[in-house]
């Protein structure tokens, strides 16, 4: 079983000191140890952005893909080999802007993977522009007069897209986040966690302080995570009080379950050198 040391790579970490990504990586490594997974059976798929560097910093299998395409790549991997535990790491622009069309579809398919979105409400790596989750009025170099349109509500979208595990975490509380990651990974189906991740360099608005003053934990309020309507109601809570924790959870067949040909088998394990197509040839003659 893996230890925390095993999970380090030779790469020097290049995130800004104090960046919220440190909390996420700590929570993730802790979760891997807690889950007792073998490194060779874990795959990290990451997008492009500051968050994408997760692939370099955690010593497990990884696919560092292109901007916005974490979910289709992760879906392909899981279809190929359900024995792998797949974690997607995406950014708010990566997932909710460039990759938005994959988000609802991967959720409704209920692909058995975990998606962690580093939601810093800004494009970090491109030096600070607005994203789909930037607050209205948020001023950046690309929106000098403030973002004009209201942000997307990814949690609500996940719930209405038939999400089966919809949660929000805060990188300033890595212990709590670690718990969420462990539960999401154990969940049979699509485990989705949107993580508030302060960008200390480009987001002057949504700081650690800003989040700390507002967030509270759903599980401490007796929230019923089995109730879709209550979950949806909670997902609209924004302003002075913002909930984190598990909004909604249910059991439903996973994407792979739809394919009887995958029962007790993986595509990766199939023998391919003796495929017989005679039956089709017969039907064509």
């Amino acid at each position: 079983m893996v230890s925390l040391q095993d999970l380090n790579t030779s790469k020097k970490i290049t995130w800004c000191p104090g960046c919220g990504n440190f909390g996420i990586i700590a929570a993730f490594k802790g979760a891997l140890v807690e889950l007792g997974l073998e490194r060779e059976r874990v795959v990290v798929v990451s997008g492009i952005g500051c968050h994408g560097k997760m692939a370099d910093y955690v010593n497990v299998n990884s696919f560092h893909g292109i901007h916005g395409r974490v979910l289709p790549v992760a879906t392909g991997i899981k279809l190929a080999n359900s024995g792998l535990t797949v974690f997607g790491f995406s950014g708010d622009a990566d997932c909710y802007d460039e990759g938005w069309d994959h988000f609802c579809h991967a959720i409704r398919r209920n692909v058995d993977i975990t998606l962690i979105v580093h939601n810093n409400m800004v494009l970090g790596l491109t030096t600070g522009q607005t994203t789909a989750t930037s607050q209205t009025g948020f001023r950046t170099k690309s929106t000098p007069f403030g973002a004009a349109v209201p942000p997307l509500n990814p949690i609500a979208h996940a719930i209405v897209s038939h999400g089966t595990f919809v949660a929000r975490g805060f990188s300033g509380d890595p212990k709590h986040l670690q718990g969420l990651i462990v539960q999401a990974a154990r969940h049979r189906g699509f485990g989705y966690i949107d993580v508030f991740q302060p960008c200390v360099t480009f987001n002057y608005l949504n700081t650690y302080e800003w989040f700390r003053q507002r967030i509270y934990k759903l599980e401490e309020t007796g929230h019923d995570a089995g109730n879709r309507w209550k979950a949806l109601e909670k997902s609209f809570e924004w302003g002075d009080r913002i909930p984190i924790g598990i909004f909604y959870k249910e059991e439903r067949p996973t994407f792979n379950d739809n394919f009887p040909q995958l029962k007790d088998k993986t595509l990766e394990g199939m023998q391919i050198d003796k495929v017989n197509v005679d039956l089709i040839l017969q039907s064509m003659s």
């Binding site: 395409r69 979910l71 289709p72 279809l79 190929a80 069309d101 040909q261 990766e268 199939m270 039956l279």
Partner: peptide, 30 residues
């Protein structure tokens, strides 16, 4: 033919998803 041949056919949300899914599966050895 997918069931008879123990393979999977997917119609995804678009061509970008299609090629990225294929690449994911190929990375995993398929």
């Amino acid at each position: 033919n997918e069931r008879d041949f123990n393979m999977v056919t997917i119609q995804p949300e678009g061509e970008i998803a299609a090629i990225n899914m294929a690449i994911g599966a190929a990375y995993a050895g398929v």
